[in-house]
């Protein structure tokens, strides 16, 4: 555990060294750190606060204010259900339910095996393909409950294939 914390500190520091110690760099720093770590462990936020010489609570307040930042580790695959207007009216909420049901988690959570995390986004700007779910940065068009099953099945098959290859 302590080893892990030291590693987080080290990784954060390495990113911080690329920035000036100015508060205006806070959000770009946070974006880079999350890009590396996937989320904000306590140690990372403490490290950033020290670097920018600002109260820890202010870093925490920015992290919790913006939707993009997360406090729990992401899964290997990210599932982001678009709930823009067009998606919602064409059944985005039904797709969200289907993901919740299949992954057995609520929005903002990660599955126990850390394979998937489930988030919602306001609008990814692909309204014409509604309802959209962005899976691992790829927008999937017209996601109905059966497509959710299909996408999950393809991940399962891929995992099995990889398992066989490594054996």
């Amino acid at each position: 555990m302590i080893e892990e914390q030291a590693k987080v500190k080290q990784q954060t520091r390495r990113i911080l060294n690329r920035f000036g110690r100015k508060r205006e760099n806070l959000i770009p720093i946070l974006q880079k750190v999350q890009g590396k770590l996937g989320y904000f462990p306590r140690e990372a936020m403490l490290e950033i606060a020290e670097f920018l010489d600002m109260p820890e609570i202010d870093v925490y307040s920015v992290v919790t204010f913006y939707n993009q930042f997360r406090l729990i580790p992401p899964g290997k695959h990210s599932v982001r259900v678009c709930l823009g207007t067009a998606c919602h009216m064409k059944g985005g909420y039904i797709a969200l339910d289907a993901w919740k049901r299949r992954l057995d988690i609520d929005r903002g959570q990660t599955t126990l095996d850390r394979e998937f995390d489930l988030e919602t986004v306001a609008c990814v700007g692909c309204c014409v393909m509604a309802p959209v779910t962005v899976v691992d940065d790829k927008p999937q068009a017209k996601v109905e409950p059966t497509k959710v099953d299909g996408i999950l099945l393809s991940f399962k098959l891929e995992k099995e294939r990889q398992g066989e290859e490594s054996r």
Partner: peptide, 8 residues
């Protein structure tokens, strides 16, 4: 920062 859902 085009945040309106439905505008792209």
């Amino acid at each position: 920062d085009e945040g309106d859902p439905g505008a792209f």
